[in-house]
C-alpha cells in the first residue's frame, strides 16, 4: 500500500512541473498586452515600459518562468496586475467560495446521479431506464450558461423566489450557513450540478447493469441471499470505478465553473479566472490555473489512495 502511494506521489511530480510550464507558457499565446487592461488606452510607451519593468514583464519568457517557479514553490504566486493584491491571497479567498459552491453542487449531483444511476441500472432496458437516460443526456448536453440564465429568468425574474447573483447581502466575507445566505447558492449549485449529475447517472447505471450481469450475482441469488444483501455487493463492486468518476467530477466542479460563476457573479475561482482572462492579468491567470491544476492532481491522488481501500485488488496489481 505504501509503495503504491509513493509511486503515485512520484508520478505527480513530473505532472506538476509539466502543468506549471504549460500554464505559464499558454497564457502568452493569447493576443494582446497584459498591461492594456490596467493602463489607460493612450498611455505612452514610456509608461508602458516602466510598468512592464515593475512587473518583470520586460524579461525573456524563460527567465520569467524560472523566477515565477522559484517563487511559486514557496507559495508566492506574485502580484495581480489588475488589483495589485498578492495572487495567493486572491486565490485563497476565491477557492473557499468555490469549494462552498462545489460542495453543495456535489451533494446535489452525486446524490441524484447515484440514485438515478442505481434505478436505471436495476431496470436496465425498461421505460424507467430510458427516461433516466434521457434526463442524464439532457443534463450533460444542456449548456451551463443557458441553463443558468433560464433558471434566473424563472426563479429570480418571474417568480422572485431566489436571488439572481452574488454570495449574500454582505458578500462572501459575511457568509454564513443559514437560509439567508444559502438561498444565494441554490441556482448556481443546481446549474453547476447538471453535468456531473448526468455523467454520474450514466456511469453508475452502466456499472450497476454490468455488475448485475456478472455470474457472482447469479450465484448470490442462487444461494438465496436477499436483494438487500445483493445490493450491498453490487455497490461494493461498482464503488471503485464510481469513485474515480466522482473524483474527476469534483475537480471539474472546481475548475469548470467559469461560466456559471460569471452568470451568477459568484466570487469563486471561475469568476476570478474569467476576470484574469479579460484583464490579461497574467500572474493571476497563471496562479489560478496552477492552483486548480494542482487541486486536480491532488484530488486524483486522493482517489487513487482511496480506491485500494474499497477494492484490495488494485493495490495487489
Amino acid at each position: 500500500m505504501f509503495e503504491y502511494l509513493a509511486k503515485r506521489l512520484l508520478y505527480a511530480v513530473p505532472i506538476c512541473i509539466t502543468v506549471s510550464a504549460l500554464c505559464f507558457s499558454l497564457v502568452y499565446l493569447a493576443p494582446g498586452d497584459p498591461l492594456s487592461a490596467v493602463l489607460p488606452a493612450d498611455a505612452s510607451q514610456e509608461i508602458i515600459d516602466d510598468v512592464k519593468a515593475q512587473y518583470g514583464l520586460d524579461k525573456p519568457v524563460y527567465v520569467q518562468y524560472a523566477l515565477w517557479l522559484g517563487r511559486a514553490v514557496t507559495g508566492d504566486l506574485g502580484t495581480s496586475i489588475g488589483s495589485g493584491r498578492p495572487v495567493a491571497e486572491e486565490i485563497g479567498q476565491a477557492i473557499v467560495n468555490s469549494l462552498i459552491l462545489a460542495a453543495f453542487a456535489s451533494v446535489v449531483g452525486f446524490t441524484i446521479g447515484s440514485a438515478l444511476g442505481m434505478i436505471a441500472g436495476y431496470h436496465s432496458g425498461s421505460t424507467t431506464d430510458k427516461m433516466v437516460s434521457a434526463i442524464a443526456i439532457s443534463g450533460v448536453s444542456v449548456p451551463h450558461y443557458w441553463l443558468g440564465i433560464v433558471l434566473v429568468v424563472i426563479f429570480s425574474v418571474k417568480l422572485n423566489w431566489l436571488p439572481a447573483m452574488g454570495a449574500g447581502a454582505g458578500g462572501s466575507q459575511a457568509w454564513q450557513w443559514d437560509w439567508e445566505h444559502m438561498r444565494f447558492m441554490i441556482l448556481p449549485a443546481i446549474t453547476l450540478a447538471a453535468i456531473p449529475t448526468g455523467i454520474i447517472t450514466r456511469s453508475v447505471r452502466a456499472l450497476v447493469a454490468d455488475t448485475l450481469s456478472k455470474e457472482f450475482v447469479t450465484a448470490l441469488r442462487a444461494k438465496g441471499l436477499t436483494e438487500r444483501t445483493i445490493f450491498v455487493h453490487v455497490v461494493k463492486n461498482s464503488a471503485p470505478t464510481a469513485l474515480s468518476v466522482v473524483g474527476v467530477q469534483l475537480g471539474y466542479l472546481m475548475a469548470g465553473s467559469i461560466l456559471v460563476e460569471t452568470v451568477f457573479s459568484w466570487p469563486g475561482t471561475g469568476l476570478l479566472l474569467n476576470t484574469a482572462i479579460f484583464q490579461r492579468d497574467i500572474p493571476l491567470l497563471q496562479g489560478t490555473i496552477l492552483v486548480l491544476a494542482l487541486f486536480f492532481v491532488g484530488l486524483n491522488l486522493l482517489v487513487d489512495a482511496l480506491q485500494p481501500l474499497l477494492d484490495p485488488r488494485i493495490s495487489r496489481s
Binding site: S156, V157, A164, M165, F264
Partner: peptide, 10 residues
C-alpha cells in the same frame, strides 16, 4: 447578470 439582478430587485 446585470439585467437579471435589476429585474429581480437585487
Amino acid at each position: 447578470a446585470r439585467v437579471a439582478a435589476l429585474r429581480s430587485g437585487q
